[in-house]
Amino acid sequence: MTPEDLAQWMYSRLQDQGCVYQDESVGKALYPTSNEHLYRVNDDGNIVLATGVLAAFRKMDNEKVVWVKPDRYWRWRCSTDEPGREQRG
């Protein structure tokens, strides 16, 4: 699986469900076989998506998708969102 493959899976999941959680996406990178180039361990010891996956995902969304940091998921931008990619909820 390439970073682009995982980004496409994430985008499809977003289209189907309206949001996609980071844990769900990391799980896709880990199973059934570990794709170590798709994730990394951050400073807090959490497994997160690799930069290449995030870059590929950003190219797909054209600023239509926002990151909800407290709950660690992506969703479609709505009219009440503040400027910027990162949102509170």
Rank of each mutant, 00 (worst) to 15 (best):
P32V: 06
G18Q: 08
K59Y: 01
N46Y: 13
P3W: 01
A7L: 12
E63Q: 14
L54W: 14
D61R: 14
D43C: 09
K69I: 13
D5A: 13
L6C: 07
H37K: 13
P3I: 01
L6F: 02
N35H: 14
S12C: 12
S25P: 02
G89L: 10
D81T: 02
W76T: 03
R13D: 14
Y73C: 10
A7Y: 11
L30N: 08
V65D: 01
Q87V: 09
I47V: 08
G84Q: 01
V66H: 06
T80I: 09
C78N: 13
K64A: 11
Y21K: 07
Y73R: 11
G27H: 02
H37P: 01
T33V: 10
E4L: 04
L30R: 07
V66R: 03
Q22K: 04
D61L: 07
A56D: 04
V66Q: 03
D16K: 06
L49C: 06
E86P: 00
L14A: 11
Q8N: 03
H37Q: 12
M1F: 07
V41A: 09
V66A: 05
N46C: 13
Y73F: 15
S79H: 09
W67S: 12
D23V: 10
T33L: 02
L38S: 09
R88K: 15
G84D: 10
G27V: 01
R58H: 11
G27I: 02
R85Y: 06
R77C: 00
W67N: 07
K59D: 13
P70Y: 00
G27E: 00
V53Q: 12
R40Q: 13
P3Q: 01
N46G: 07
G27W: 01
V53F: 10
R75F: 07
